[in-house]
Structures are given as structure tokens and as C-alpha cells.
Simulated assay, not measured.
Amino acid sequence: MLEDVIRLGLVDEDEIVLDEAALSLARLDHPDVDEGPYHRLLEAVAVRLETIGEGAATAHERAAALSSVLADAFGFAGDQATYDDPANADLIRVIDRRRGLPVSLSILYVSAARRLGWAANVLDVPGHVLVLVGDASAPVIVDPFRGGALVEPEDLGALLMAASPGPSPAVRHVAAMPNRAVLVRLLLNQAIRAERSGKGRRALELYTRMTMMAPDHGPAWWERARLEGIDGDVAAARNSLTSLLEVTRDPELRARVAETLTALVAP
């Protein structure tokens, strides 16, 4: 199973199938679970979407079909009652419970759309994740956490304003997330919650998976090194910081890493 994660770090970005990759990550925590039913569920979603979305040509029509299938027919929705439950970022548990975080639900929407050849991307909005359906000429934004509801321009503007309250400049830019960045976001949700609940070694395990799957993602190497240091594994922390130096060109970060390496000596 770990080999699947390593493979994710080696394949081209465009070769990553988001929901299949997210299942591979989740399976690391459920080694005895039969993946068959979960793959069949994803196939069933695609078949239903092909039927419901037959003839859907515009982004609005395709967005409506996605909502009809994933939210109405299969019951996927945001977990507002227990938002911080780690199960919400574990695709196996998301499928079991039909509840999840914005990023895990967005993975299901985008993957289903792409199986039909529809243009769809996970959209990084400060403090939230949405789905962009359609190409750049006439796209539609939907919110899988709210049952695939359409996000109108004024709604998006409100989200951006809420992300930058006070005197700081307003956030005005949102961007489609590359596939690996989406998976990192999924694991990051779990890692942050693990550390908040005092499970440092669980968080370290998740950051380690991030560095395997996205070896060029510098922040994961930094967090991995930090937790390895807390765990007393100085050699591992130094190795992680050295790996970070290999992937970042940021002069300030490189100076910070070099300083930390100098200070990080075996007891």
C-alpha cells in the first residue's frame, strides 16, 4: 500500500486520478478494508452521472447534474455537525458516512466530472474549497459542502472578503489546484487535527506521507522535520531539512533551514 503513495510522488501531475489517489491514501489507515465496494461506488456515480447528464452541454447543466447525482442521489453533503472529525478527510470514511470536508467532497465532484470528459477543477478559496465546472470561457462554481449549490459572484466575493478581515488587503484571486496540491490539502486537514488533539506522532505520519506523495512540497518537509525534532529523532529531522534544501529556492527559507541545521545537533 505504501508503494502506491510512493508511486504518486513519481507520476506526472496529469496522470493522478484524484478519487483513486485519495482512496490509496485512506487505505493506509484501513489495511483490512476491501477496496472493491468503494471503487464500485465511484463507478456507479459515474454511470449515474452519464445518464443524468446526457445532453448536458453547458457548465450550468453539468453543474446541476453533478449536484443531482452526488448530493441528491448518493447523499453526499458537508459534515456541519462534526466538522473537525478526522473521518471527514478520509475518503473511505467519507464514502461510508456520505459526509465530508469541502476538499474531500470536491475530490468526488471533480473526479466524477472528469470521468465523463467534463472540465472540472478543485478551486482554492481562502478558508474553503469549491469546484469550478467548465472551461475558462463560461465556468460555473459550485459548493459541494452545500450539496453542490451554485456559488454566485457575490457569494464568492463575500468569501474572499471574509478571508481578509480588518485592514489587510482583500484577497481577490482564487486558483485551480493541481492534483497533488489537492491531496496535500486532504492530508493537511488530518495532520492539523491530529496535532491539535495531542497526537504528534500521527501528525508526523501524515506529513511523512505528504513528502512521499509530493516531494517538492517544502512546507511538508519543514513540518516533518519539526515533529521529528520534537520526537527526539535528530538524524531524521536533519535528513528532512536537507531534503527541504533540495526542493526550495526561497533564500529566506534556505537561510532559516541552514540556521536550524546548525542548531540541531545530537544530544
Rank of each mutant, 00 (worst) to 15 (best):
L105P: 00
L150Y: 01
V234I: 13
A194N: 06
A63M: 09
L91D: 02
S137Q: 14
N179K: 13
A57I: 12
D90H: 15
A46H: 03
D143C: 08
A136R: 12
P165Q: 03
A26F: 08
T82Y: 15
I107W: 01
P144A: 06
V174M: 05
A237H: 02
G100C: 12
M213V: 05
P215W: 02
L91G: 02
G232T: 01
A112F: 09
V171G: 00
A237T: 02
S104K: 04
A56R: 07
V122H: 07
S68L: 08
A136M: 09
P37Y: 08
A255V: 01
A112P: 07
R27G: 09
R172H: 08
H173G: 01
A21Q: 15
R146S: 15
D250F: 09
G157Y: 03
T211W: 03
G198R: 08
A63C: 11
A162Q: 11
A65Q: 06
M213E: 08
G147A: 10
A113Y: 04
L186P: 04
A65F: 05
V33S: 04
P144D: 08
A138M: 07
K199G: 04
A77G: 05
L28S: 09
R7N: 11
P169N: 06
D12S: 14
F145Y: 15
A138K: 05
L188I: 06
L261S: 07
I16S: 01
V45I: 15
D90K: 12
G218V: 10
P219H: 05
V11S: 13
V140Q: 00
W118Y: 14
A191T: 05
A225C: 11
D143Q: 05
A162H: 00
D84V: 04
H173I: 14
N121Y: 04
L206M: 14
A89S: 14
R202K: 14
R98P: 03
A63H: 07
E152Q: 12
G100D: 04
S104Q: 03
A194F: 03
A89L: 02
D124A: 15
V171I: 11
H30N: 08
W221E: 02
N239E: 14
R180V: 07
R146V: 02
G232Y: 04
R93P: 01
R40V: 11
A136C: 07
D231I: 04
L156H: 03
R99H: 06
A120F: 06
Q190C: 03
D96I: 12
D84F: 14
A56Q: 03
R62W: 10
R201K: 11
R27Y: 09
G147S: 09
A77H: 12
D84P: 02
S137P: 05
K199N: 12
P178S: 12
G229L: 10
R99N: 00
A181G: 15
D32A: 13
M213S: 04
V5T: 07
